[in-house]
């Protein structure tokens, strides 16, 4: 007698088919479904989109980078617009060695804003539902 192979196994599974429940299972399921509330989707749509956040992040990092760059190259003298720029730079110049703190600070601010954004988004979704 030849031994059964994978093909025979396929046939046997197909022939056997699905198991059949004993009684009116569908009715019992529907009776339970009738008293079960639907859970609304918890998917959150942020108020500010990914692209906008990317632009904000780029602007923030560009600002920090620019301040670092100007801070190290500024001559500190000039008149009119030049002196105004110098003044701004002087006020905003990052002290030597602490730029990493600025980056961390900016990142924390962005993270906080992102969390707030999601929370607000979730609330507005909840109100809609």
């Amino acid at each position: 007698m030849p031994e059964l192979n994978d093909h025979d196994l396929d046939n046997l599974f197909r022939k056997a088919g699905h198991c059949v429940p004993r009684t009116n299972l569908a009715d019992r399921i529907m009776a339970r479904v009738a008293v079960t509330p639907l859970v609304r989707s918890t998917e959150v749509k942020p108020l500010i989109g990914k692209r906008t956040w990317l632009v904000i992040a780029l602007c923030a990092f560009a600002l920090v980078g620019m301040l670092m760059l100007i801070g190290t190259t500024s001559s500190g003298s000039g008149s009119g617009l030049g002196s105004w720029v110098d003044e701004v730079v002087e006020r905003a110049t990052i002290p030597q060695g602490s730029w990493s703190l600025w980056v961390i600070g900016v990142s924390v601010c962005l993270l906080t804003l992102a969390v707030m954004d999601r929370v607000l988004g979730q609330r507005s979704e909840g109100l809609k539902n």
Binding site: H18, C19, P21, R22, L25, R28, I29, R32
Partner: peptide, 27 residues
Amino acid sequence: EHMVYTVCHRVLRSTEDAEEATQDAFV
């Protein structure tokens, strides 16, 4: 119904348990 019941029956190997699990799965 039959597909879900078959999955439950293969795992639980008991008619009663499989029916109960099928109900829970659909709910």
